[in-house]
């Protein structure tokens, strides 16, 4: 994965998407978070939610760091007892989105700007339209959701909220098959895959 990304400055910092598959366990979020805070590394975005597999949770963590640091972080995370697997990817290796909600006064929007035009131009949709306010929703990259803030600001943007990033790894087969490997007492190479030997593949992990 990130080894294939030699186009990026090798020692430079960039955004990495860390994907973590875990058991659903109280306290695990803290265990993972302190791996970052111990090294004084800021988490730019953190999303945790149930994965496609029942009882398995998926974390998406975004940090701005060097590959070397991200690899070490990922290994420390994977070392935690309730963590099944960790992947880390550059932005080029993932499809990612953030969701944003914008609350604006309906009268101004209706008066000064065509709601329809705003929606169309920004790929947004109206979630709620009330007499007093309207809530728009859009998804996209940071720059896209930022752009709509700028547009709505003159119209009296009341409130704005953005979700954490969710990311799909381009070269991933999902986790179902891997999980079955984990459930065996003697897992095969699928689980023990690692970056040194899997250099030839498009994706590899620890």
């Amino acid at each position: 994965m990130s080894n294939q990304n030699d186009t990026e400055k090798p020692s430079g910092k960039q955004e990495y998407n860390i994907t973590v598959y875990t058991e659903n366990q109280i306290g695990l979020l803290n265990r993972i978070a302190i791996i970052f805070t111990r090294r004084k590394i800021n988490i730019h975005s953190l999303n945790t939610s149930p994965s496609e597999i029942e009882s398995i949770h998926r974390f998406n963590i975004v940090v701005h760091e060097t590959e070397d640091v991200v690899r070490k972080l990922s290994r420390q995370i994977e070392k935690q007892v309730e963590v099944l697997k960790v992947y880390f990817n550059t932005n080029e290796d993932v499809i990612w989105q953030e969701l944003a909600l914008y609350k604006v006064p309906t009268d101004i929007i209706a008066e000064k700007a065509s709601v329809e035009r705003l929606l169309r131009e920004n790929g947004a949709r109206a979630v709620v339209i009330r007499k007093d306010y309207t809530v728009f929703e859009t998804t996209g990259h940071r720059e896209e959701t930022d752009a709509l803030i700028k547009i709505l600001q003159p119209f009296g943007l009341i409130e704005f909220v953005r979700s954490a990033r969710v990311a799909i790894i381009k070269d991933s087969d999902g986790f179902n098959r891997k999980l079955r490997e984990f459930e065996k007492a003697e897992p095969g190479e699928e689980v023990a895959e690692n970056e040194y030997l899997n250099n030839g593949q498009k994706i590899f992990t620890m």
Binding site: E23, V81, V83, F182
Partner: peptide, 17 residues
Amino acid sequence: CNHIRSYRPKPLIRKEY
């Protein structure tokens, strides 16, 4: 206990190494 699915006490030995 002798198995926890999310916990790999020792990595698989690879002959290549």
